[in-house]
Amino acid sequence: MSLVTLLSRTCVTLVAALLAAGPTVAVAAPTPAPAGTPAPPTPGPAATRWAVQPSGPDGPTGRNYFIYDLAPGSTLTDHVGVTNLSDRPLTFQVYGTDAYTTADGAFALLPADRAATDVGSWVRFDRRTWTIAPGRRADIPFRLSVPANATPGDHAGGVIAAITQARTTADGQQVRVDQRLAARVYLRVDGDVRPAVAIESVSVSYDNPINPAGGGDAVVSYRVRNTGNVRVGGTGTVAVEGPFGWRLARTAPVDLPELLPGGVFTVTERVTGVPPALRLTAEVDLAPTTVDAALPPVLRSASTWAPPWLLLAALAVLAGCLAVRLRRRALAKRGAGDTSARDTAADPGRPAGSPATRPLVGPAGDAP
């Protein structure tokens, strides 16, 4: 089999395969919602159980959190209810501390060995240690004093009731375990409120498939930061586009966790079935909200290359096939020209391109 014939058959096979491949519709893979507030610790074998909730001098008030709007320099008195749900007396350490947003978007409180510097330090109890009888609740008063130089905006923390118990590890070591439950504190200090959210970075990667008909996975990550002075939430979506704004996929809105001022959260989306459209652009559309209102959307994008390798290979083969055909045609024309030139050289008197003639000879061999 000649090289020309082999290339021609390969060209036809690839073209047929490309025509058989149908269009691909990209589908956004579902993304799990970010983790929320961690559940309280599971009771140990001793069935040490208790509850912490906002309360008043006469008992619980039905509030889920301590929520305040106060001016700098103001002071108030409130109560926290600590209920002993165990069958023996329990001694609690009751105090205030600060909150922060974890890397996975959860609301968390400072560990016991870190001193509060914000709203947790503004909470004061008459004493730190409280012993409560089994099955009883203590409504413990505290004072919240806002410094005169407190910065405007949201300050978050918690009122904690903790129990420290001695435990024995599997290897026989004695350790002290600090178990804590808390009621959240949200305090807004009067002044200039500046809600703001920024998308600090966007990255996109693409798992380029060999067969463009199947599509590949695009992984988009973006980091959101609360750059204002109030807590924010909201939703985020990702749109993947090809050249000239060709929409390939769009994810469903993802709920963002509550971000305290300064909080950072990273979202990662995986979009499946995205065709290799040479150049992919992932645009993040963030719709932030506060407890009061919605904020203007925040947009940011990033791009990556997604060359359709099989299609490019097919085009290269087609170009090779065309070059071979043109070469064969040129050689055929050149061969025809050489034959005509030889005929002309054999009969110089004959015009170029005229058919050759043979002299007539009579029966006796004489010329007429």
Rank of each mutant, 00 (worst) to 15 (best):
S2P: 11
L3N: 14
V12A: 12
A17D: 09
G22Y: 09
G22Q: 13
V25I: 08
P34H: 08
R49Y: 04
W50L: 05
A51H: 02
Q53M: 09
P54M: 01
N64D: 10
F66C: 06
G81Y: 10
T83G: 12
T83W: 11
R88N: 03
V94T: 09
V94Q: 02
F107C: 13
A108S: 15
D113E: 14
R114M: 15
G120C: 03
V123D: 08
V123L: 13
D139I: 15
N149A: 14
H155R: 13
G158L: 06
G158V: 01
A161L: 01
D171H: 13
D171I: 08
G172P: 12
R176I: 14
R180S: 14
V193I: 12
A196E: 03
S201Y: 10
D207Y: 00
G214V: 13
G215F: 02
A218P: 10
V219H: 00
Y222N: 09
R225C: 05
V230Y: 05
V232N: 06
R247C: 01
P257F: 12
V264C: 14
F265S: 10
G273C: 11
P275E: 12
L280S: 00
A282P: 12
V284A: 01
V284C: 06
A293C: 02
A293K: 12
A294V: 10
V298K: 00
V298Y: 02
A302E: 01
L312G: 00
A316P: 03
A319S: 07
L331K: 07
A336C: 10
G337P: 01
R342V: 13
A346L: 10
D347A: 04
A352W: 12
G353L: 06
A356N: 03
A356Y: 03
P359Y: 11
D366A: 14
P368G: 10
